[in-house]
């Protein structure tokens, strides 16, 4: 028996929007720890990892570990039927091949349930060891989204370089080149507007902009984004989900032939 009640139901809609461009089908894993997912994109270049901790739910009942295979587009179709202020409850019985999403309006005058068929998905879990990163950049998530969008109109790849001076995003394409430098800026009115660079040593890596743009679909989930870089390691782009957990994206770097 599984029953997860999330008062802030719109959060689940945002989580789906943050993943479905990258992943079609995925297994959601429920355990005492929380509601989680790890899935790779079809080209095995990028990976998304989600954790919504059990403490973040108003009610969290998970009698035994359960893995539920869902098509994210179908799940999104169902969640779009929930109002933005609705409370969402996810329910599943042991051994059944479906999951129920229950939507309650805030004043309890409308209650809807949508049952979705589950699917069998061969899950490929990757073991991601903890790593020391050479540079960690924290910046406003809207700024990062803007940079990725702007640069993708010029080129296909971005070189992200971190030095003492700041973080530089560079691209080149048929029509020309572009460089955007964000300097460390801690003296802002609101902490979420700060750009903070923790650098052990300078690092410069090349990534496909198409994937970074997909990651920025998580922007509505968090005011800030953390980008962790090390040479010869995939970049980790993390959006913290307030009081609940995170959505992390891993993207393998490009290498010169």
């Amino acid at each position: 028996m599984l029953e997860l009640r999330l008062v802030q139901g719109s959060l689940l809609k945002k989580v789906l929007d943050a993943m479905r461009e990258l992943v079609n089908d995925a297994n959601f894993d429920c355990s005492a720890t929380g509601f989680s997912l790890q899935a790779m994109d079809s080209s095995h270049v990028a990976l998304v990892a989600l954790l919504l901790r059990s403490e973040g739910f108003e009610h969290y009942r998970c009698d035994r570990n359960l893995s539920m295979g869902m098509n994210l587009n179908n799940m999104s179709k169902m969640l779009r039927c929930a109002g933005n202020d609705d409370i969402i409850t996810i329910k599943a019985d042991d051994g059944t091949d479906s999951v129920t999403f229950m939507f309650e309006s805030p004043n309890q005058d409308k209650i809807a349930d949508f049952e979705m068929k589950l699917m069998d998905i061969d899950s490929e879990h990757l073991g991601i060891p903890d790593a020391e990163y050479q540079a960690i950049v924290r910046m406003p998530s809207s700024e990062f989204a803007r940079i990725c969008k702007d640069l993708s109109s010029i080129g296909d790849t971005v070189v992200i370089s971190v030095t003492k001076e700041g973080v530089k995003f560079s691209t080149a394409g048929d029509i020309g080149t572009a460089n955007i430098v964000c300097r460390q800026n801690k003296t802002v009115d609101k902490p979420e507007e700060a750009t903070i660079i923790e650098m052990q040593e300078p690092v410069s890596l090349t990534f496909a902009l198409r994937y970074l743009n997909s990651f920025t679909k998580a922007t509505p989930l968090s005011d800030t984004v953390t980008i962790s870089l090390s040479s010869e390691l995939p970049v980790v782009v993390e959006y913290k989900i307030a009081e609940m957990g995170y959505i992390r994206y891993y993207l393998a770097p490009k290498i010169e032939e």
């Binding site: 095995h44 270049v45 879990h125 990757l126 073991g127 496909a208 390691l233 393998a252 490009k254 010169e256």
Partner: peptide
């Protein structure tokens, strides 16, 4: 253009 790495070059399947 640079070659695209695969994630499995870095992380192993578990």
């Amino acid at each position: 253009t640079p070659m695209q790495n695969d994630l499995e070059e870095f992380y192993s399947m578990v």
